[in-house]
Design a protein around this nucleic acid. Structure first.
Lengths: 207, 207
DNA sequence: TAGATTGTTAATCGATTAACAATC
DNA sequence: TAGATTGTTAATCGATTAACAATC
């Protein structure tokens, strides 16, 4: 247990977590892989492997896992039990809604500042966050030791904004722009590919 | 060519498309797989396979593909050259920002109506869309022949909202709630897993 | 022609699924 | 004990990568 998690496993984890918390609230104290598998329509083997990869203790035959421990172990494995400071770049409509995205806060993501290059937006306040000048980003990130950022600018501005983030010491970028960003070794770009999601929906209906 | 596209291939396509359109705007008329691969940091074999799976014509050795045809073929394969009517359920902050999500419009997604169960929101207008009572959803969808929907309600309301969408004849659901939705055969739930994206960012920085 | 790029067929790799002994 | 569930080791499956002949 406590192996390196595959990307696929990580993507399933938040759904397990949400479900397990619900079971806990319902008064359950133990849960087995087949029980979870049945809920999600996954194979029990897949769930067993997923759980084994994060659980700090072995499950008990015939019983399963202690719900309380499992929830903690998943949160720990996903990094939800630590705080992660981040900035947001691009205070357009999508950016504004992410400022108030509650889920992020629940898992330890702490939005510290919002930046934009647009003079119309700088100085304005959304959900309690005042938009700052992107030219102050580097100083801010260095001073506050921030290495994670959300990028919600339009495509034409994405490249330069990304470069500015890298220069500011950002090492992990959550990119909402539909464009490939090339970054130095060691910097991660996690693309939030909403257009592709829509394409998958279209595919389903057109076929 | 014109094979069934894998999910992975579909997810790369929008990035190709954005890049190719940029090349077109720059006056280019032909493009080769190795050239594209170099830009994205993919292997040229992968790009070649991806292009072959959507292109309506064979590429020309030593030259590549006609940019104009390729752009059209990708748009066609992704369903971006048809209109897709959809509804949005859940007019909270995320829902409101998606109402004004311009990218969706560019690829043929046409948002026809917004629904919510919250009395405070019903009747209000966001970006020109007036929020309707979710109880009117079924009649609306039937009347307007709509089979695609976006789900942006909070977790506790997601299950009932999903059920209502299914009853309204929705066959493809873009789900932003961090919860597993079980639906009848033939209905697709495409999860937009933002929490998992953050987990992947955390993973990168914590290791 | 020579060389770059194509499409196809085979090999590799990683994730999922199956099989099965161990155990409470 | 019997039976459900566990973890592990092996088989399958699909996607990526490699090899190579065809071609403009």
């Amino acid at each position: 247990m406590r192996k390196n998690l595959s990307k696929q496993t990580i993507q399933r984890m938040p759904y397990y977590l949400q479900y397990l918390k619900g079971l806990w609230d319902d008064g359950k104290t133990e849960v087995s892989a087949p029980f979870i598998a049945d809920h999600f329509g996954f194979t029990e083997i897949q769930v067993r492997k997923d759980l084994a990869s994060v659980s700090s203790v072995q499950g008990k035959p015939k019983v399963g896992f202690r719900l309380f421990n499992l929830i903690q172990d998943i949160e720990e494995a996903l990094g939800f039990r630590r705080e992660h400071k981040m900035i947001l770049v691009g205070a357009g409509s999508l950016g504004q809604s992410l400022v108030s995205y509650r889920e992020a806060h629940k898992i330890g993501a702490v939005l510290c500042a919002v930046f934009d290059s647009n003079r119309e937006l700088i100085g304005k306040t959304f959900s309690g966050m005042t938009v700052r000048d992107i030219r102050d980003m580097k100083a801010y990130c260095k001073e506050n030791n921030i290495h994670m950022g959300i990028l919600t600018v339009p495509v034409p501005k994405a490249k330069s904004a990304c470069d500015a983030m890298v220069k500011s010491g950002i090492k992990a970028i959550w990119n909402f722009a539909q464009i490939h960003l090339s970054v130095p070794e060691g910097v991660l770009v996690q693309n939030e590919n909403m257009t592709a999601s829509l394409a998958l929906l279209f595919q389903h209906l057109d076929s």
